[in-house]
Measured scan of single mutants.
Amino acid sequence: SEFSSRSGYGEYVQQTLQPGMRVRMLDDYEEISAGDEGEFRQSNNGIPPVQVFWQSTGRTYWVHWHMLEILGP
Rank of each mutant, 00 (worst) to 15 (best):
13 V>R: 03
21 M>F: 15
5 S>D: 14
23 V>R: 00
15 Q>C: 08
45 N>V: 05
31 E>N: 07
19 P>F: 10
47 I>K: 11
73 P>M: 05
48 P>W: 02
29 Y>V: 10
51 Q>H: 04
55 Q>P: 13
22 R>Q: 11
9 Y>G: 12
42 Q>P: 08
1 S>I: 09
51 Q>V: 04
25 M>P: 01
13 V>A: 02
45 N>C: 13
72 G>L: 04
73 P>I: 05
16 T>L: 10
17 L>T: 01
44 N>Y: 01
18 Q>T: 13
73 P>G: 06
32 I>S: 06
27 D>C: 10
60 T>C: 10
48 P>C: 08
11 E>P: 09
56 S>W: 05
24 R>T: 06
52 V>E: 07
14 Q>D: 08
18 Q>Y: 08
29 Y>I: 07
42 Q>N: 13
57 T>K: 08
42 Q>Y: 05
15 Q>A: 12
44 N>C: 07
19 P>S: 10
17 L>F: 10
67 M>G: 01
67 M>N: 09
38 G>V: 08
73 P>N: 08
44 N>P: 01
34 A>D: 00
27 D>R: 12
20 G>H: 12
68 L>A: 02
43 S>K: 07
36 D>H: 01
27 D>G: 07
41 R>G: 06
19 P>I: 07
50 V>H: 02
13 V>N: 09
1 S>T: 10
6 R>P: 14
22 R>L: 09
49 P>N: 09
26 L>R: 10
4 S>D: 07
50 V>C: 15
27 D>Y: 14
38 G>D: 05
2 E>H: 10
32 I>D: 00
45 N>E: 13
60 T>Y: 09
14 Q>L: 01
49 P>L: 08
4 S>M: 05
69 E>R: 05
7 S>C: 09
24 R>H: 03
29 Y>F: 10
22 R>C: 03
9 Y>S: 03
52 V>Q: 06
14 Q>F: 03
8 G>I: 11
18 Q>D: 07
47 I>E: 15
20 G>L: 01
72 G>N: 14
10 G>F: 02
41 R>S: 02
64 H>L: 01
73 P>L: 06
67 M>E: 00
22 R>T: 08
24 R>C: 02
50 V>P: 00
62 W>E: 06
59 R>C: 12
24 R>S: 06
70 I>R: 04
8 G>A: 15
40 F>C: 02
17 L>C: 02
71 L>N: 03
26 L>H: 00
61 Y>L: 13
37 E>F: 09
7 S>W: 04
10 G>I: 12
1 S>C: 08
65 W>K: 04
39 E>I: 11
39 E>K: 00
50 V>A: 13
39 E>W: 10
66 H>C: 05
60 T>N: 15
32 I>C: 08
15 Q>M: 12
40 F>G: 00
21 M>G: 03
21 M>L: 01
17 L>P: 02
72 G>F: 14
32 I>K: 10
39 E>D: 08
42 Q>V: 05
17 L>S: 06
69 E>C: 05
50 V>N: 06
50 V>R: 01
59 R>E: 05
2 E>T: 08
72 G>W: 14
71 L>E: 06
47 I>T: 14
39 E>N: 03
